[in-house]
Amino acid sequence: MDSYKRRRDRENKQVKSNNIELATVTSPDTGQGVNAQGVGEYREIPLVAPFGIRWNPPLGQNIQLIKNWNNGKAVVAVGTIVDQFLEPGESELFSIGGASIKCKANGEIEAKANGGATIECKSNGSVVINSLVEITKEGIIKAIDFESTVHGGVYYG
């Protein structure tokens, strides 16, 4: 099959396919958009996100494409498949390295570093660090579960 016929066949599949397609990232964004493989190969796909959020899907990640073949063959990537459950009304920012910030439906915020600290901003105004230390909104520092916690230089009372 010559290259012209392959190209025409691919374009026919693309035109007849839905306006939404799942594709796999073959090259992450390096400033020009991502490349992905779906029904066909797509190059330099712009990434779309809400204001204040930047994202760059890693190699091999499935992404959702929206296509508008009737208006200049425009294709944009609008998101990735959600692989973890969130409660209704929650949002989470996360990196491939394991860092995350979760805005909970009850108004609390939880920030985590991969293998490191967890910081929770509670709705009562307190801050909890690694489930071990609580700083109240009045600035009082409390040890949580003081008896079973290994510590140095901090004494009860």
Rank of each mutant, 00 (worst) to 15 (best):
I20N: 04
R43M: 01
N68L: 09
L93S: 04
A36W: 07
M1H: 10
T24M: 11
A49G: 09
R7Q: 13
T136C: 05
A117W: 04
R6K: 13
P28M: 15
N124D: 15
V128A: 05
E134L: 08
A111Y: 08
I63Y: 08
A36M: 08
C121A: 13
R7F: 14
I109H: 00
V34T: 03
D9F: 04
I81S: 06
G72V: 13
I66W: 06
E87A: 14
V48W: 02
L65T: 09
D2G: 14
L22N: 03
F146M: 04
G152C: 05
E92M: 09
R10F: 05
L93C: 00
K13T: 07
T80E: 15
I135R: 10
G79Y: 00
N106M: 09
I141E: 01
V133R: 02
S123W: 02
Q84F: 10
S27P: 01
V34S: 02
G153T: 07
E110A: 06
V76G: 00
S91I: 01
K137E: 03
R54F: 00
Y4R: 12
G97V: 05
N68A: 07
E110I: 15
L65K: 11
I63T: 05
A105T: 10
K122T: 04
I141K: 04
P88Q: 15
S17D: 13
I101L: 12
S17Y: 08
D9K: 03
I109K: 10
G152N: 11
C121L: 15
K13L: 12
W69M: 13
T24G: 11
L22S: 08
Y4L: 12
M1K: 09
L22K: 12
G33A: 07
V39S: 14
Q14C: 02
E11P: 00
E21V: 04
Q64Y: 11
N130A: 09
F85L: 01
R10I: 15
E21G: 05
K104V: 02
V150Y: 09
G139T: 08
D29G: 06
P88R: 15
G79S: 02
E147D: 12
V48M: 00
G139I: 11
G60R: 13
G97K: 14
D83E: 15
D29N: 15
V76L: 08
N71G: 02
N19R: 11
K122V: 03
I141P: 00
G97L: 09
S17G: 12
G52T: 08
G157R: 12
Q14T: 07
S3T: 14
K16A: 15
K104D: 10
E110H: 01
E120M: 06
P88E: 14
E87R: 13
G125T: 04
E21I: 06
I119D: 06
S123D: 13
A77N: 05
V48I: 03
I66P: 01
V76F: 06
V128K: 11
G60W: 05
K73Y: 07
V34K: 02
T149G: 02
S148A: 14
Q61M: 12
F51P: 00
T80P: 01
I81L: 15
G125A: 03
F85S: 07
I96L: 08
R10S: 12
K104I: 02
V150R: 07
L93R: 06
R10M: 14
L59F: 13
I135K: 03
H151R: 13
Q64G: 10
L47Y: 00
N130L: 06
D29H: 04
Q61D: 10
Y156V: 12
A113F: 07
Y4V: 14
A23R: 07
K102G: 02
N70E: 13
